[in-house]
Amino acid sequence: MSIASTNRLTPYLFLAPAGLVLAFALFYPICYMIYASFLDWNPSQRIGEADFVGLRNYFKLFGDDAFRESMGVTLKFAAVVVTIEMFLGVGLALLLDRNIRGMSVLRTLFILPMMIAPIVVGLMWRYMYHPTVGIFNKTLKSWGYEGIPWLSDGSWAFASVVIADVWQWTPFIFILSLAALQSLPSSALEASKIDGATGWQQIIYIKLPLMLPVLIVTLLLRLIDSFKVLEVILVMTNGGPGLSTEILSLRINRTASEFRELGEAAAMSNLLLIVLLILTFTMFIYNKAQEVRAARMRAAEEEA
């Protein structure tokens, strides 16, 4: 009896600590945030003292030009960054998928930018973009050109931030697509070679279609992460000049700590979370669909 009851309890005992932490430190705060987004709340008040204002925070946000601009910057940043990184990452993977010495060293070096603290990445790039001591302008000046206002002009600042993110995250896509490439069935490639397919034909008709499931998941993962970027931009430009690089996470931080409007910041966090939830669900449903399809194909093979 006692053995049977411990056995029945075991899974819950194993799950309990993680469940408790997640419930108190992750799930509860998120619910709290959803509630807080309906309050007029500043940091010196306890939440019970804040006034309930219904949807006012949301209406205020949609009427707020700065918020709309920040939303636009976020979407533009995510779209530009992910597009460039996908092209570069997949391209490099196709190019470097060869049997060469030192590939593992190369991969190790490529992970470095992702492992280093985003704060430090921002620091390095801010230094390199520096108008007088930075390497870019120093080089330009030594070649006799004018220096570029990397971080002090709106559109240049956006480009600079994009470049830094591309530097940091292209390796992620490169490594995932390389792994996908190397797990492709060699029979298909050999068959196409015998049929006389050129390198390009192999890429377009065989490699890319077979990699597609992985590429779509990679794209969604990267897209989700690109909405989380914060520290690099914070260090480089702090959202400026003007609002040209102020992505949503930065705006949340500023609304909470500078403008002291916790309710509004919570409303923004909510909107960001909804966007991310939609993306995550897309990914989840896509994964499930793939699994179902694979299972059906396996079943069909067994029947045949």
Binding site: L22, A25, L26, F27, Y28, P29, I30, Y32, M33, A36, W41, P43, R46, I47, I224, F227, K228, L230, L248, S249, I252, N253, A256, L262, A265, A266, S269, L272, L273, L276, L277, L279, T280, F284
Partner: peptide, 22 residues
């Protein structure tokens, strides 16, 4: 767990500050 993985720190900023403090 998969969904919680997607929560960015920025989203937790306000509630964590409020709960931890008060």
């Amino acid at each position: 767990t998969l969904m919680m993985r997607m929560v960015p720190p920025a989203v937790l900023l306000v509630p964590v500050f409020g709960i931890w403090t008060f």
